[in-house]
Simulated scan of single mutants.
Amino acid sequence: MSLGRRTLGFSWPALVALAALAAPRVVLHDLHVVEEGSVATVLLAVVPSICWVAAVLWRRPPRPFLTVVVIGAIYGVLLAVGHQVLWNQAFDGVAPSLGEVDPRAQEGILRVAAVFSSLVTGVLVGVVTGAVAAALSRLLPPRSHSVCER
């Protein structure tokens, strides 16, 4: 049994798949398919977190908080990659500027800041969602295992 499965309750491909549930929001937002504040944007932001909690409650990993924080961190990586790949589309070809900073350095500085921001966002989403998952794991009784699952 792998370290990830023992500690986190899921295989690494499963953790990546759970994190990937949140990736469509990044793509759809950066391509301006959905706009901030719309019902679709809210659903794209909330439903993946609900799925993470549901997966943890179903699987009952030994460390539910850590499991969801790891999923959030993976989501942060996907978020960072998505924003970098869709950088020009997100800004409609007009990247933000930093005023008097050398124009050659601006894009690099802004891209590094975007990566850092994405990673922090992913981890924070994981922390908040992980806290919910851990609390619910303690409050709700473990699901009963059927004869077929043993």
Rank of each mutant, 00 (worst) to 15 (best):
G72F: 04
P48N: 09
S137Y: 10
S97M: 11
L3K: 14
S97V: 12
S38F: 06
P96N: 03
G122H: 04
R25S: 15
V68Q: 00
S118L: 06
L21E: 00
R59E: 08
L140P: 04
A40D: 07
V53R: 04
A135K: 08
L18K: 01
R150H: 13
H83F: 14
G72Y: 01
R25M: 15
A90I: 13
S117A: 07
M1F: 08
I71V: 15
T67M: 05
A131F: 13
V69H: 01
L21T: 07
V125W: 11
L15C: 11
E107R: 08
H83I: 04
S97A: 14
L139V: 15
A135S: 06
S38I: 09
G99N: 05
A22R: 11
T41A: 15
S11W: 02
E35R: 13
V53I: 11
A113Y: 11
V33C: 08
W87A: 00
D92E: 13
H32N: 10
V127L: 13
G126I: 14
F65P: 02
A114K: 10
M1I: 13
H83R: 11
V147N: 13
E36N: 15
V33H: 06
I71H: 04
S137H: 13
R60N: 10
C148I: 14
L18N: 07
P141M: 12
I109L: 06
P142T: 11
R6C: 06
E107M: 14
G72R: 06
V94P: 08
R59G: 03
T7D: 03
E107A: 12
I74E: 00
V16P: 01
W87Y: 04
A54G: 05
L140D: 10
L8Q: 07
R59V: 14
H29T: 14
V68A: 10
G122P: 01
N88M: 13
G93H: 03
P142V: 12
R104F: 09
R63K: 12
L140K: 10
V26R: 00
W12K: 07
V42L: 11
G72C: 06
C51P: 01
A17V: 10
L98F: 12
V47R: 07
T7K: 12
Q106V: 15
Q106A: 15
A114Y: 12
Q84I: 15
V94Q: 14
G72N: 05
L15D: 05
W52C: 00
V81Q: 06
Q84G: 06
W52H: 08
L110I: 15
D92V: 09
V127M: 10
L139H: 05
G108K: 00
W87N: 05
L31Q: 11
F91M: 03
G99R: 02
A135G: 13
E36Y: 11
A55S: 03
V132E: 13
A114C: 13
A131W: 10
V132W: 07
L21I: 09
V26T: 07
R111Q: 12
